[in-house]
């Protein structure tokens, strides 16, 4: 088979792919940004945040879990889809307790960066203001569930990379919450370590290192310098893994 047969289009632009890749993987490799939160290039696609929702041959689906197929006609950067994405972001903001100005992750946070990128101007809905505990029992890390967006990246990192199963998602619906593998339920009593993959994979500020605060001033952080879109596409241009 010639190379050209392994291609599809996103918003009219031709994208090549390797068989087995998902639409999102192929798009990112080609330098086309599709918003996403629960996807991480080092992990198996998960498909829960739904930010990467696109229209493939007329059917709405998540780009991260849909395999690229020759000849697919994909729509992504369209006003209607971006308005859907803004709504999903607003859902994530009102579901938890996100106070960006006081958050150490501000400027490095993918949720915040995507909200800027998609021009989400306010949370729109009445906040649910859930009561969620902060767990500061671990000497090297703090677990602030107020900011958790249920992407399960820490769950997957701890299970698949660290081999520990420190985290799991429990509960149902709006009561969904992260639980920790220890008798007390506290992170400090678990086998979690600051060197774990799970310690650095959180896209928001739910898992943060202790003993280090505002080392990089606000205004000079990752997404202060360039938008998440430019950042991801820039990585693709240099040939690095997105």
């Amino acid at each position: 088979m010639s190379d050209i047969e392994y291609s599809f289009t996103i918003d009219g632009q031709q994208v090549r792919f390797t068989p087995g890749e998902t639409i999102l993987q192929a798009a990112l490799k080609a330098g086309i940004f599709i918003p996403h939160l629960c996807f991480h290039p080092e992990f198996r696609p998960h498909g829960s945040c739904k930010l990467c929702t696109v229209v493939v041959n007329g059917r709405t689906t998540a780009a991260c879990t849909t395999r690229a197929m020759p000849g697919q006609d994909v729509y992504s950067d369209k006003p209607e889809l971006n308005s859907h994405r803004r709504l999903l972001l607003q859902m994530l903001f009102v579901e938890g307790n996100h106070f960006c100005p006081g958050c150490e992750k501000s400027g490095n946070c993918q949720l915040q960066a995507l909200a800027y990128d998609l021009e989400m101007l306010n949370p729109h809905f009445a906040h649910f203001f859930p009561k969620r505990p902060v767990d500061a029992s671990h000497p090297d890390a703090v677990l602030d569930l107020n900011r958790c967006i249920m992407c399960e990246l820490c769950v997957r990192a701890s299970r698949d990379v660290d081999g520990k199963n420190v985290f799991a998602l429990a509960g149902r619906g709006l009561d969904s919450h992260l639980v920790v593998d220890s008798k007390s339920g506290k992170l400090g009593d678990s086998t979690f370590a600051a060197t774990d993959k799970a310690a650095s994979v959180c896209p928001v500020g739910a898992i943060l290192p202790k003993g280090k605060g505002f080392a990089v001033p606000i205004g000079e952080r990752v997404y202060d310098k360039e938008s998440i879109r430019e950042k991801v596409v820039g990585l693709a241009d240099t040939g690095a893994e997105p």
């Binding site: 945040c49 994530l92 009102v94 579901e95 967006i149 149902r172 619906g173 709006l174």
Partner: peptide, 21 residues
């Protein structure tokens, strides 16, 4: 539906509760 949503994906987990409220 808000009670029975499994909580996996954002639109159903949060959306069903928004609709109910």
């Amino acid at each position: 539906f808000a009670h029975e949503s499994c909580g996996f994906c954002t639109p159903c987990r949060v959306g069903t509760s928004l609709v109910a409220s």
